[in-house]
Computed example of a mutant assay.
Amino acid sequence: MGNEPRLGSKVFYKIGEVSQVTKLPAYVLRFWESQFPFLNPKKSRGNQRLYVRRDIETVLEIKRMLYEEGHTLEGVKRYWARRGRISPQRVKPKELAQKLRGSLRAILKLLESN
Rank of each mutant, 00 (worst) to 15 (best):
V76R: 01
F36A: 03
A106G: 05
R85K: 15
V11A: 14
K63P: 02
G70T: 01
D55C: 06
K14L: 14
R49C: 00
D55A: 06
L29I: 04
Q35P: 08
R101S: 06
S44R: 10
V52W: 01
L29Y: 03
V18D: 01
L104G: 04
E69L: 15
R64A: 11
G2T: 12
R53L: 06
M65W: 06
R54H: 05
V91F: 09
L7G: 01
R82C: 05
F31H: 15
V28M: 13
S113M: 11
K99V: 08
R45H: 13
Q89Y: 09
I62K: 01
R30I: 05
I15F: 02
I86L: 15
P37E: 13
P93R: 13
L50W: 00
R45V: 08
R54I: 05
R101G: 06
V59Y: 00
G16L: 09
A81S: 11
V91K: 11
S44I: 12
K43F: 11
T72G: 09
M65Y: 06
V21D: 04
E61A: 07
N114D: 15
V21M: 10
K109P: 04
G102I: 06
V52Q: 11
E4T: 03
L50E: 01
L50V: 00
R83H: 09
A106Q: 13
S44C: 10
V11P: 00
Y51F: 14
P37W: 09
S9D: 12
R6W: 07
G84S: 02
I86E: 12
L96N: 15
G75P: 03
A106T: 04
R83A: 10
L7T: 01
P41T: 01
R83F: 07
K42L: 12
L104C: 10
L50N: 02
S9K: 15
F38H: 07
E95G: 05
E69S: 12
N3W: 11
Y79V: 02
S34K: 12
L108R: 15
G8Y: 04
P41K: 00
G84R: 00
E33G: 02
G102V: 05
V28D: 06
P41H: 03
R30F: 04
L73W: 08
E74S: 14
K94I: 05
Q20D: 14
T72H: 11
V52I: 13
E74G: 13
G70D: 04
R49H: 03
Q98P: 03
I15T: 02
F38D: 06
E95M: 15
F31S: 11
M1Y: 10
R82I: 04
K23F: 13
V52P: 01
V91N: 08
R45G: 11
K77G: 02
V21T: 07
A81T: 08
L24D: 08
L66T: 02
K77R: 11
E112P: 01
R64G: 05
P5D: 00
L7E: 00
V52C: 06
L50R: 00
Q20Y: 07
Q89V: 08
K10G: 05
A26T: 09
G46L: 14
R49T: 02
L24Q: 15
R53S: 04
